[in-house]
Amino acid sequence: NITNLCPFDEVFNATRFASVYAWNRKRISNCVADYSVLYNLAPFFTFKCYGVSPTKLNDLCFTNVYADSFVIRGDEVRQIAPGQTGNIADYNYKLPDDFTGCVIAWNSNKLDSKVSGNYNYLYRLFRKSNLKPFERDISTEIYQAGNKPCNGVAGFNCYFPLRSYSFRPTYGVGHQPYRVVVLSFELLHAPATVCGPKKST
């Protein structure tokens, strides 16, 4: 009989979030998941669920729940959905087409922007091929755009693959930082360890 609440607040209220290319994953298990708490945590810009209804979450049980978190800019949030393409979905964080879970995003301009520009958040701009779903690539190998090998040196047709967002508070919403948490629900042929409040007794 599990009584402890799932530590969603640790994920959502973390002081620092990860850069999207090096997104963070927390496995959540053996706890009571009260998803209604999430609705009250922040004024969400996005709370979209796929393959599951957000209002039914509190009635369900899962084997595992994974919470992935990272920062992107406002106009990239739409890429965090099944079947999307674009720089983020292709080279940084890719959801599977049959994704079961929820994408939660909110504006973090007050936390993640600086007047002089916050350069701490990076994204991958160049990659030889698209990522597979939930693949994480943290390599910093020089990207070869031409025929000549780069031998690890940046220059003509040889690019450092990561680029930094420079978040400034005066930017338009599309270029402001957004914190994203992706909850993916895993149903294996194994005992369910993460249940809503109704199912945990």
Results as ranks from 00 to 15, higher is better:
L125F: 13
F8R: 00
L187K: 12
P149E: 12
L60T: 13
P7W: 06
R16M: 09
R124G: 04
G172Y: 12
D137S: 02
F160V: 12
V65K: 01
V180R: 00
Y93S: 01
I138F: 06
C6F: 05
Y119M: 13
P54T: 10
F167G: 05
P82N: 03
A89G: 04
A192N: 12
A14H: 06
A81P: 02
V115P: 15
V77N: 03
A105P: 00
L131P: 03
Y121V: 04
T201N: 15
P191W: 02
V173R: 12
A67D: 01
S139Y: 00
F8M: 07
C195F: 07
Y91L: 07
A18W: 03
G86A: 05
F44N: 15
K128Q: 12
N151H: 12
I88R: 01
R168E: 13
K148Y: 11
Y39F: 15
Q176C: 04
N120C: 08
D137P: 02
T193C: 09
G146Y: 04
Y165T: 06
C102S: 00
V153F: 10
S29C: 08
D68Y: 03
F99T: 00
G83S: 08
Y50W: 14
F17N: 07
L95N: 00
R136G: 02
A154H: 10
T193Y: 10
Y178L: 06
N1V: 07
Y178P: 01
G174P: 10
G155C: 07
F70I: 00
Y21N: 05
A105M: 06
N4G: 11
R78F: 08
C31D: 06
K198L: 13
S69K: 01
F134R: 05
V77Y: 03
D34M: 07
D90C: 05
D90W: 04
G172P: 13
I80V: 08
C31Y: 04
H189P: 12
Y123S: 09
P177Y: 04
N30R: 07
R124V: 04
C195S: 08
I88F: 03
A67V: 10
G196E: 11
Q144V: 06
K48S: 07
D9N: 12
T193R: 11
Y39R: 14
H189D: 15
L5H: 10
D112C: 00
P96F: 00
G172C: 08
Q84S: 11
A18G: 08
S29V: 08
C49Y: 00
C195W: 05
S166K: 14
K199T: 14
P133Q: 05
F62E: 07
I142S: 06
F70P: 01
G174T: 12
G174N: 15
T201S: 14
Q176M: 07
V194I: 10
G101W: 00
F8Y: 06
P96A: 05
T201G: 14
F45E: 15
V103F: 00
V103N: 00
N13I: 00
G196D: 11
T63I: 08
F17L: 04
L183W: 01
Y21A: 05
P133S: 06
A42F: 10
C102A: 00
A81G: 07
T15S: 12
V153E: 14
T170A: 12
D97N: 11
V181F: 03
K198N: 15
V173A: 13
N157C: 08
S108G: 04
P96K: 02
N4L: 08
F45H: 15
L38T: 03
P82G: 02
D90Y: 05
L122T: 15
D75A: 08
R179N: 05
P54I: 15
K132L: 11
N151I: 08
K198M: 12
N13C: 06
Y66W: 11
V181T: 01
N118S: 14
S108N: 05
Y123C: 06
T140I: 08
L41S: 12
R16C: 08
G196H: 10
A18D: 07
N30D: 11
Y50R: 01
R136Y: 02
K114F: 09
E10N: 06
S164H: 12
D9C: 04
Y21W: 06
K114E: 14
G174Y: 09
K56F: 06
P177N: 03
Y39I: 12
D9V: 10
N40E: 11
H175M: 13
F167L: 04
A145S: 11
Y119T: 15
L95C: 01
N30G: 08
C61L: 07
A67N: 06
A33C: 09
R73Q: 09
V182Q: 00
S53W: 06
I104S: 00
G117I: 05
F156P: 15
P161T: 04
K128G: 11
A14Y: 02
N107E: 06
P161L: 02
V20R: 03
P43M: 06
V194K: 10
G155P: 07
N64W: 10
V182Y: 00
V52P: 05
Y66H: 07
E135Y: 01
S200D: 13
Q176E: 07
V181S: 00
K110Q: 12
R179G: 03
R136T: 04
T46E: 13
F134H: 09
L122P: 02
C49P: 00
Y178V: 11
G152Y: 05
V103C: 04
R179D: 03
C61W: 08
G152T: 08
L95E: 00
A105R: 01
N13V: 00
F47K: 07
R25C: 03
A190G: 15
P169D: 12
F185Y: 09
R127W: 01
G83D: 06
K114R: 12
E186L: 00
F126I: 13
L162P: 03
H175T: 10
F99W: 12
Y123T: 05
D59F: 07
G51T: 01
A14M: 06
S164W: 06
V153P: 07
Y93T: 01
T46C: 08
G174Q: 12
K199D: 13
L41Y: 15
T201C: 12
K26I: 10
S19I: 01
A154V: 13
L162E: 05
K114N: 15
L38E: 04
K128L: 07
F12R: 02
Q84C: 06
T140C: 09
G174R: 12
I72D: 01
L183D: 00
D112F: 00
D68Q: 01
R179W: 01
A81Q: 07
V32N: 08
C102D: 00
S108T: 08
Y66Q: 07
R27I: 13
R124P: 02
C150I: 04
R73I: 04
A145Y: 10
V11Y: 05
I104N: 00
A145W: 10
T193P: 10
I80A: 02
Y91S: 05
Y50G: 00
A154E: 15
I28G: 05
Y171I: 12
P43E: 11
L131R: 01
Y50E: 01
P133E: 06
S36D: 10
P7A: 11
L131I: 13
R168S: 13
V37Q: 13
N109F: 07
F134E: 07
I138G: 07
R179L: 04
C195R: 05
F185R: 00
K148F: 10
A14D: 07
V115K: 15
A42I: 11
Q144H: 07
T100W: 07
V182H: 00
T201V: 13
T140R: 10
Y171S: 15
S69C: 04
K148T: 14
E141G: 10
L125N: 13
D90Q: 09
G146E: 08
T46W: 10
D34N: 09
G174M: 14
V32M: 09
R16A: 11
R168Q: 14
Y159G: 08
Y66E: 05
L41P: 08
K110Y: 08
A145V: 12
T55R: 12
I2L: 12
F70K: 01
P133K: 02
P169K: 09
K48D: 08
D34L: 09
G196K: 09
Y66I: 13
P161A: 04
D97L: 12
R73P: 06
K198Y: 12
N118E: 14
P177V: 03
V77P: 01
V77Q: 03
V194A: 11
N64V: 13
L187H: 10
A14V: 06
G101V: 00
R124Q: 04
C158M: 03
A81W: 06
D75W: 02
S164Q: 13
F156D: 15
G86C: 02
K48I: 06
L111P: 06
A81S: 07
N4K: 14
T100P: 00
E186F: 00
A105K: 01
S184F: 08
N87Y: 15
F70D: 02
N109K: 10
W106E: 00
R78E: 14
R163W: 05
D75Q: 08
P177S: 05
S69V: 03
